[in-house]
């Protein structure tokens, strides 16, 4: 028995104009078959207009143990969010 088919991560653009979103994974011997499997497995209900397939092994993920240093520094940069600023009512929408 030869090796197991590698795992692929599947990203689908649900509608024109939206980002591709991770929807799940599947097994396939190569990228072309992964693409076709993704079509058959993940768009049975007309869910997509575009598919990306990525070998799971090619994904570099942030380390959970570094979650603090990685993400917490952005928590106090509240001035990046529009709600930080008061705009007088008479100015209207900005």
């Amino acid at each position: 028995m030869s090796a197991e088919w590698p795992l692929w991560e599947i990203f689908i653009r649900g509608q024109h104009g939206l980002n591709h979103r991770h929807v799940g994974s599947l097994h396939a011997p190569d990228a072309e078959l992964a693409m076709r499997h993704a079509r058959d497995v993940y768009t049975r209900r007309n869910e997509g207009v575009s598919i990306w397939v990525v070998p799971s092994s090619a994904i570099t993920a942030s380390s959970p143990s570094e979650k603090g240093p990685m993400f917490e520094p952005s928590q106090d940069k509240v001035y990046r969010h529009p709600s930080f600023f008061d705009i007088p009512d008479e100015i209207g929408h900005m």
């Binding site: 088919w5 599947l26 097994h27 396939a28 076709r36 499997h37 058959d40 497995v41 049975r44």
Partner: peptide
């Protein structure tokens, strides 16, 4: 032979 093919 494999789930992906079953679905296809």
């Amino acid at each position: 032979p494999v789930l992906e093919e079953d679905i296809a």
